[in-house]
């Protein structure tokens, strides 16, 4: 695969982990998500979340992950279920702290919209 020197086969397990992380219904790391939701980062986290939604369902990911795990017998089984307490609290905390985060309010409205959609799903 292009300049990296790795084959698709080699990077596949890492790509799978990334998709698994992204396909979680809840946002696990709030500050991380917010950072990349800013215009400065071209709303990368939001774009990626949308892409994942259209490409994969969570069940599909879990199925693939389980398959991989049993096949490779790694120790990752422990981490399959994300801890619920990890869900970040209120969003307001961040809003007036840094222009990185609140420079574009529509980002947050967008994020809210994403969340409400999850409830429906």
């Amino acid at each position: 695969m292009h300049y990296s020197g790795y084959s698709t086969l080699e990077i596949r397990p890492v790509v799978r982990l990334m998709i698994d992380y992204l396909a979680r219904k809840e946002i696990l790391h709030d500050a991380f998500f917010k950072k990349y939701a800013a215009k400065k980062y071209m709303k990368a986290s939001i774009i990626v979340r949308e892409w994942i939604r259209t490409e994969y369902s969570e069940e599909e990911i879990t199925a693939v992950m389980t398959e991989t795990l049993t096949a490779t017998k790694t120790q990752e089984v422990d981490f399959q279920e994300p801890e619920q307490e990890n869900i970040p609290e209120e969003e307001e905390d961040y809003e007036d702290e840094d222009e990185n985060y609140n420079s574009d309010d529509d980002d947050f409205m967008y994020a809210d919209e994403l969340e409400s959609r999850e409830v429906d799903a």
Binding site: M1, H2, S4, G5, Y6, T8, E10, I11, V14, V15, M18, I19
Partner: peptide, 11 residues
């Protein structure tokens, strides 16, 4: 780090 970078770029 190199394989993580490659995977990120690939995806």
């Amino acid at each position: 780090p190199s394989i993580i970078a490659a995977a990120g770029m690939y995806l």
